[in-house]
Structures are given as structure tokens and as C-alpha cells.
Design a protein around this nucleic acid. Structure first.
Length: 610
RNA sequence: GCCGAUGUGGCUCAGGGGUAGAGCAGCUCAUUCGUAAUGAGCAGGCCGUGGGUUCGAAUCCCACCAUCGGCUCCA
């Protein structure tokens, strides 16, 4: 729910870049963290004043504000939020001192029991002494580690707002009680609050669901079903351009294309282990009985493995790199679906590399190099975070394979990242069930994080499928698999790209690259001729024959976010020239047709602007 | 799946117990125009779906579906 005023794409384009006000996240300012955390306490106090039956749980500061989870008999309504906000302002205006008190466990327990707060009691069980309590004046206190500010006087009653209510499970466990979470945002000054709200509005304007509709890139149909995007001609052009780009990069790196079916026997997925692990996430099985049923594939690896296994492989063939734009189907929970970033049918730019142990590190590095080149071409190289996704050592049963294999795979990944000097962080418990991953994470316009590219080292599936190759000495050896997808999924990538560019695609990706605008119908013939020459170069160009006035045609082209426009009137016809207007730079004046063609050709091959 | 909100012509939205409204888009006509909206006219909606309450429902109630914000999940 929190938007991202300072993430990379905010800085890049759009009106949001115009403001001088720097909005700090909680982790960037210790003072703001205290302020937000104290706001959370003030809110809890206000809630308990107005709703004495509401029980308190936890309430931290977050990136741009705070939340607090309550166990309340009735969910809070919008009206309740207003009342709570009013009550908070009262508390703030009282200027209550925030007092820290240290107590021992018994004392803390005694006091919490006196208030009948079972959640706090459960929290206390996990705490080490000394236990700290924070008081707001002498009316209200909360078990809390702090830190806080000195007095509610330091909170600006005009610099916060309560934004939304949401259900949240106690301790994040869906089997436990569902609590009512109230989210708020808080700042030091009202100006910062205003700026924050303005940037949220800006972020909504670049939402890919909105822009995708405006530009006509994709649709959803209730008749087809939720989470199943349909691609229009314009959207398909964008998709194909991305596919063609990656295919060329892959061919240059020795990948081999394969194509595999959308369904397969359930036995295949039992063998891979996916069935046992992810049964609920597959679309229901087709077929008579469980032994002969078919399922829609949720991943491509078992299919690629079959191609590997179709022949006895020699070490001389390795590494083998099978690549496929494979469409997979996952029955995501209904509440999780959203736009293109979380769908039920999507296309992975998948590949599986079968390598010898000696080749592993080198191949892994080459994959990471490919992903970096891809991100750079898409101008995402400044906005991703690299995550080493390792298994949770305290929950080994969630994963397949031996400790030894996991250790080897995880150290291979860490070593690769360190060799490349890539900035990264570790995500414990984020691994796939069959192996650790290196994931490339980006944020959308509303600051939610999404995984795009991924590389995974896998010792387990080769084991489960009994993969082999004949080594130099004639012995049978087991290959290692690398799963990798630089885009992750085309759907998600396109969603992110739309927001990154706010729909203003660079020339090479734009579904419509050039629109010719003849001033009157007299200029249509010349426009058609110029368009034909552009099409010879592979330029996506159209002639506006709407008969509208020039101003209107320009407006329409601008709204369609076409990167290059060309006005054609008598002067242009006579000079065999085009008057060029680009979306980024406006009117460039008249340029000879031959030169325009040259520049278009170069811009497309360089993936640069006109 | 869970909590909450929303659902009115292609799009954006107003209205709200007595049988639907605007702007844009579309179509027609006139205008032939030089860097972000020419004018006039026309057409277009079982008000998400199904039940219920009512003399009467788009409006109130219930269920379902979809979307949105969270939670959980995310191969």
C-alpha cells in the first residue's frame, strides 16, 4: 500500500522528479523512525479509548509510516478511522510525555495480565530481560522495545493520515487469528505529507493496469477467467520484440531452442517432486484417475529434462542449454491476482543448462552476465536488487536434497556474486524447494517488490530423474542443472516496464514507433511513400488519415505515446523531407527523408532514441 | 483462501425507491487546417450476475462473480 517516492523510477521520469522535497524512508532517518513508531502507539491508545474491547498486538514503523494490529470484535470502518484520527489528534495535543520503564519478567507479566492482553503475553514469552514498557503519560502503556520520541508534542497532528484497514494474521500465520491492521503514514511536516500524497497519485498514474488499458496493450476478460491476460496486437508487438531481443542474445551464447507441450502426465510431476510440493497450486487434474491424469504444466524443467534424457550424453556435448518461452499455469489464490504482475497463466523465458561440475561456476557467471546485459538493455540495471535466496536451515524439511548438495550450490552462488562484485543481500528461506537461487528483484510503481530474473543451481532434479553423462574416463557422471529466466515472466516484466517508462517506451520497444501526420489530404500520397520506405527498414509506422487538424493529430499521437511524429505539408513534399517531432524533444524541424531513414535505422539497431 | 472497499454506455465519472445523465472515444455532415482538443448533429447502457423485500429496485437486503488495498502464498 505504501508508494515509493524515492525509488529509481520516481527519479527517472515524470512530474514527480520536479519536487525538491526529499522523502525519507524510516530506515533512512532515525528520527522519523521514532516519530512513526510513536504514532503507532498513539493510534493504539486512541483505538483502545474508542474500542475498549480491542486488544493490542504489535505496531511497528514501516517505510513511510506505521501500522498497528488489533484483535477487535468488529472490523474497523472508514468512519472509525476518522474517529480514531480525531482521537489521536487529541492525544498529540495533550503533549503526553513518552516514558520508558524497565521491568523484570514477572512484573511485566503481572501488569499485562492485569490488562488482559493475551497477545502481549505471548510476545513477552519470547523476550529476554530487561523488558521495556513505554508509557504515554500515565494513561496508557505498551510492551515495546522502542525507540520513541520524548513527547507526543513532537508529533505534528497535520503530518499524518490513516490510510486503510486490512486483515492480517497473528504472527503471519494463516492458521491463527486474523487481526485488524490499520495503516497510516506519518511525516515531520505537513508539506512532506502533501508531497507524499502527491507522489502516490503520480504512482497511480503510471500503474501498468491503467496505462495498459489506455494504450490497448492487453485486456482481461471475465469470460476467459481471472489472471489470464489476453494480448492485443500492440501488446503482442511489444512481447515479440522482447522475445526476439532475448532470443538473439541467447543464440549468441550457445543456447538451443526447444518447444514442449502445455500439459503432461501427473506422473512426470510426481517424479520431479512438484506434485507432492505444489499440488494445490496446479490447475485441477484432467483425466480419469490419479495415475493416468494430466496436468497443465506449472514449470518447464521436467520437459526439458526429458529431452536431455532422450539420448546418452557425452561430456563433449556439455554444457547443453535448452531455451524455451514456455507458458505455464499456476492456480494462484484469488486474492493474490493483480494486473500482469501476478497471473495464473504466464510465459517464462526459461532455459535449463546441463553442466559438469567443472563447468558450473563458469556457466553460472555467464548466465548472470546475460541477465545483467538484459537488465541494462531494458534500463532496469539501476533499479534491481540481487537476492541470494537460500534455504532456511531451521526448516530443512521444506526442501529436497542433501545438506552437501545444498552447501555446494549455495557456495557456488555466493562465490559467483562475489567474483562479479555485485551488490546483494541474503534471503533466508527464499530458495526453491530443489535448490538455492539468485533472484533479481524490482519494485513496481506502488513500491511492491517483484521477482523478475532468477538463476537456480540444482543438484536435486538430476538426481531424481537419474540424469547422466559419460565422462572422459568412460564413467557415468551426474550433471548439474542451472534453471534460469532473465525476464522471469514476460507478463510481469512488461507490467514492470510499463511502470518504469510510464508507458513512454524507448523507440525499439514502442508498439507504434512513428506516426506520419499529413497536414491535409493532399499530402497523403507522399506520407504513404515515406511510410513504405520506413517499413522496408522494419519500422512500425502508420499514416494518420483521420482528416483531423494537425493539433488534434499531434495530441492523439502524444496520448498514444508514439516516440516519433512527423508533420508533412507542402514544404516537406517539395523538399523530400520530413518535419520531425519527437515525444521527448518536441519539434526538431525539417530533415531530409534519406537522413530520417538513416537515423531510424541506427536508433533501432542501437536501441537508442531517434 | 482470509479481512475490507468497489462494480452505471468503449473510457473517465455523476446520480440514486417511481422505469437512466455528462465529458471523451465512435458515427454522420460541414470545415482542408503547420506542432497537444474545429463546429454541429446522431447513435450507444437489462446500472456485474442471480435471488429477495416492495405496488414499483439501478437505488434497500442476501448470495455469487470480478476488480482494488492489505494478509497468507509465490516453482
Amino acid at each position: 500500500m505504501v508508494a515509493s517516492p524515492d525509488s529509481a523510477h520516481f527519479a527517472k521520469t515524470g512530474p514527480a522528479a520536479g519536487s525538491d522535497i526529499k522523502l525519507l524512508r524510516t530506515h533512512e532517518s532515525e528520527k522519523l523512525e521514532r516519530i512513526r513508531h510513536t504514532f503507532s502507539h498513539v493510534m493504539a491508545m486512541a483505538v483502545q479509548r474508542l474500542f475498549p474491547k480491542a486488544q493490542v498486538t504489535i505496531g511497528p514503523s514501516i517505510d513511510y509510516g506505521f501500522y498497528y494490529d488489533f484483535d477487535a470484535p468488529e472490523p474497523f470502518t472508514e468512519k472509525d478511522l476518522k474517529a480514531i484520527k480525531k482521537e489521536m489528534i487529541k492525544i498529540i495535543n495533550k503533549g503526553l510525555p513518552v516514558i520508558r520503564e524497565e521491568v523484570n519478567r514477572e512484573e511485566a507479566k503481572r501488569r499485562i495480565e492485569a490488562l488482559n492482553e493475551p497477545y502481549k503475553l505471548e510476545i513477552l514469552e519470547g523476550l529476554q530481560e530487561p523488558i521495556t514498557l513505554y508509557h504515554l503519560g500515565d494513561e496508557w502503556w505498551d510492551l515495546c522495545a522502542g525507540p520513541h520520541i520524548e513527547s507526543t508534542k513532537e508529533l505534528n497532528p497535520k503530518a499524518f493520515s490513516l490510510d486503510s484497514v486490512a486483515g492480517a494474521y497473528w504472527r503471519g500465520d494463516e492458521n491463527r487469528a486474523q487481526l485488524q491492521r490499520i495503516y497510516g503514514t506519518a511525516w515531520e511536516t505537513p508539506e512532506e505529507l502533501q508531497e507524499y500524497k502527491r507522489r502516490i497519485e503520480e504512482a497511480k498514474r503510471r500503474d501498468h493496469r491503467k496505462i495498459g488499458k489506455e494504450l490497448g496493450l492487453f485486456i482481461f476478460s471475465e469470460e476467459v477467467g481471472p489472471g489470464l491476460p489476453l494480448w492485443t496486437p500492440k501488446g503482442t508487438v511489444l512481447r515479440s520484440t522482447l522475445e526476439d531481443f532475448l532470443k538473439a542474445e541467447q543464440v549468441a551464447r550457445g543456447y538451443l531452442p526447444v518447444v514442449t507441450p502445455h500439459i503432461g502426465k501427473v506422473d512426470l510431476f510426481k517424479l520431479s517432486g512438484h506434485w507432492q510440493k505444489y499440488k494445490d497450486d496446479l490447475f485441477p487434474m484432467m483425466g480419469e484417475n490419479e495415475d493416468e491424469g494430466f496436468v497443465l504444466k506449472a514449470m518447464n524443467c521436467p520437459f526439458h529434462i526429458q529431452i536431455y534424457k532422450s539420448q546418452l550424453r557425452s561430456y563433449k556435448e556439455l554444457p547443453l542449454r535448452y531455451a524455451e518461452f514456455g507458458t505455464v499455469y499456476r492456480y494462484e489464490q484469488s486474492g493474490e491476482l493483480g494486473g500482469l504482475t501476478r497471473v495464473r497463466g504466464f510465459t517464462q523465458d526459461d532455459a535449463h543448462l546441463f553442466v559438469t561440475p567443472e563447468q558450473l561456476n563458469d556457466e553460472f557467471l555467464k548466465v548472470v552476465e546475460l541477465i545483467q546485459a538484459t537488465l541494462k538493455a531494458l534500463q532496469l540495471d539501476q533499479s534491481f536488487r540481487a537476492r541470494l535466496s537460500f534455504r532456511d536451515p531451521n526448516n530443512k524439511s521444506k526442501y529436497l536434497g542433501s545438506d552437501d548438495a545444498w552447501e555446494k550450490a549455495q557456495s557456488a552462488i555466493r562465490q559467483a556474486v562475489e567474483t562479479m562484485g555485485m551488490e546483494h543481500f541474503e534471503g533466508v528461506g527464499e530458495a526453491a524447494f530443489y535448490g538455492p537461487k539468485l533472484d533479481f528483484i524490482v519494485r513496481d510503481a506502488l513500491d511492491r517488490e517483484w521477482q523478475l530474473g532468477t538463476v537456480q543451481v540444482d543438484y536435486n532434479l538430476p538426481e531424481r530423474f537419474d540424469l547422466e553423462y559419460v565422462a572422459e574416463d568412460g564413467s557415468r557422471q551426474r550433471p548439474i542443472m542451472i534453471h534460469r529466466a532473465p525476464f522471469g515472466s514476460l507478463e510481469r516484466l512488461i507490467g514492470i516496464l510499463i511502470e518504469q517508462y510510464a508507458g513512454d517506451f524507448p523507440l525499439w520497444l514502442a508498439p507504434d514507433q512513428v506516426r506520419l501526420l499529413p497536414v491535409t489530404a493532399d499530402h497523403w500520397a507522399y506520407a504513404d511513400e515515406a511510410a513504405a520506405q520506413m517499413r522496408q527498414l522494419g519500422v512500425r509506422v502508420e499514416v494518420d488519415k483521420s482528416g483531423e487538424r494537425l493539433g488534434k493529430m499531434i495530441r492523439n499521437a502524444e496520448k498514444a505515446k508514439i516516440p516519433v511524429m512527423s508533420v508533412i505539408g507542402d514544404k516537406e513534399v517539395e523538399a523530400q523531407a520530413l518535419s520531425i517531432r519527437t515525444r521527448r524533444e518536441g519539434d526538431l524541424g525539417s530533415i531530409a527523408l534519406a537522413d530520417v531513414l538513416e537515423r531510424l535505422k541506427k536508433a533501432l539497431s542501437d536501441r537508442s532514441d531517434f
